[in-house]
Amino acid sequence: MTNNQRLVFIALLASQAVIISLLERAIPFPFAVAPGAKLGLANMITIMALYTLSTKDTMHVIGIRITLASLLGGTISTLMYSGAGALLSFIGMVLMKKIGGNKISIIGVSVVGAVLHNVGQLLIASMVANTWTVMLYLPVLSMIGILSGIAIGIAANYILTHVNRLNYYKDLQTFQVERG
């Protein structure tokens, strides 16, 4: 992948992620029992980036997404919450992908990402509220996170295996890695 191709691909993924997060925000809240729970559709893009780009470029995609999505329809606190969630889930997913290797599929990576996203948000919430009992809310959130994580993993797997263009980028990256 030439440098320009790489930049365009990063921009493409980031813009898709921004649109998806904005659309997701517009969907009326689907789980009445657990406010704060989200489908995490934007995570799909993060996973795609993780499987097609280098770790550093994936970080760029996430950074652009968080900044733009917060600027377009959020507040400072949403920036804080989604930032912490995204950072933690990104670290978790990268580690999972590295350590897991062949034993862990895209679903495992996606589930780890979803749950850690919730953990990150609750950590910020307990810091804001100054009481760690906020963490008691975790089981409800992580339950939904696990389910949506599995679904997102399947969706991302579909995209990765069925979109030829992505495979093309995937090959380019491995090619580059092998050579360099």
Partner: peptide
């Protein structure tokens, strides 16, 4: 797609979320 590792992770995360 699902591998054994995924199952382990799901169960582990589920249990860990009850830690607090």
């Amino acid at each position: 797609i699902m591998r054994r590792g995924d199952m382990i992770i799901v169960i582990l995360l589920f249990l860990l979320s009850f830690l607090p």
